[in-house]
């Protein structure tokens, strides 16, 4: 931001140069500097430069969309850590989880965080949908963003559901058995859908690897893509703001 000093400590000058090459702006002392910061920073430019005062009251959004996104990031990070230890094989998965709980440093707390954040995300996404509905924020021009949101809700549920199987304990296998049994009831396609989902007639190795791939690759990618579009649309359609 500031011009490099003409003389003086060369280390200081170097540090200033490096710092200035990363952060191209000073502290937001004036609105103009603040606006430039938001525009030139990759992570901040997801936001508009200015926002309605009424729209960012905590009581308006209750932070719910933002919290859903935050939990998604947290789940990605903790999930990455779990992936270092987890092998999607019926012979090893359960023992891997046990090791995570009792052997790996911080394994227990990371697993707990992943689990509770996943439940939390289902709740925050659900409540976010309710807040959007009650404020009529789905009305034109935001109809399509509501549709994207519905798909995000489904993706969130499926992400949580596919992760449920991975510990390969009694809770996991039977919850997935009950859950996928519901697919069976669709006329004609039902039994085939279930077979496709499980890679067999029972919840076994075929199901585990399918759920694993869905859980760590396919659904997060779909979810991320949908979120990108969701945020883009929120930007383009403008944020509703106070009623």
């Amino acid at each position: 931001m500031s011009a490099p000093p003409k003389e003086g400590n060369p280390v200081r000058t170097f540090v200033d140069e490096v710092w200035g090459s990363i952060f191209r702006h000073g502290l937001p002392t004036t609105d103009k500097v603040a606006a430039r910061t938001a525009l030139t920073n990759f992570f901040l430019h997801i936001h508009p430069v200015r926002v309605k005062k009424s729209a960012i009251r905590v009581s308006y959004t209750l932070c719910l969309g933002g919290l859903s996104f935050f939990l998604f990031i947290l789940l990605t990070i903790t999930g990455l850590f779990l992936m270092f230890y987890y092998i999607p094989s019926v012979d090893q998965a359960y023992q891997n989880i046990k090791d995570l709980q009792f052997v790996a440093t911080f394994g227990l707390v990371i697993r707990n965080m992943h689990r509770w954040a996943a439940h939390g995300m289902v709740i925050t996404v659900w409540l976010h949908m309710a807040r959007v509905f009650y404020q009529g924020a789905y009305k034109p021009p935001r109809q399509f963003n509501w549709a994207i949101g519905t798909l995000l809700l489904l993706t969130t549920l499926l992400l949580s559901f596919s992760g449920y199987l991975l510990p390969w304990d009694q809770l996991a296998v039977w919850a997935i058995t009950v859950g996928t049994n519901m697919a069976k009831y669709a006329p004609l396609a039902g039994p085939y859908t279930r077979y496709l989902l499980l890679g067999g007639r029972q919840v076994a190795q075929g199901a585990l690897i399918r759920f694993y791939v869905l859980h760590v690759i396919a659904l997060p990618l779909i979810g991320f893509l949908l979120m990108v579009v969701h945020f883009w649309r929120t930007r383009k359609d403008g944020f509703t703001g106070g009623l």
């Binding site: 609105d31 603040a34 606006a35 920073n41 926002v51 309605k52």
Partner: peptide, 15 residues
């Protein structure tokens, strides 16, 4: 026009 504030730092701080 509704009253607006700059996103950074107002909103970013809350987030």
């Amino acid at each position: 026009e509704e009253e607006t504030v700059v996103t950074f730092p107002h909103l970013v701080w809350k987030e």
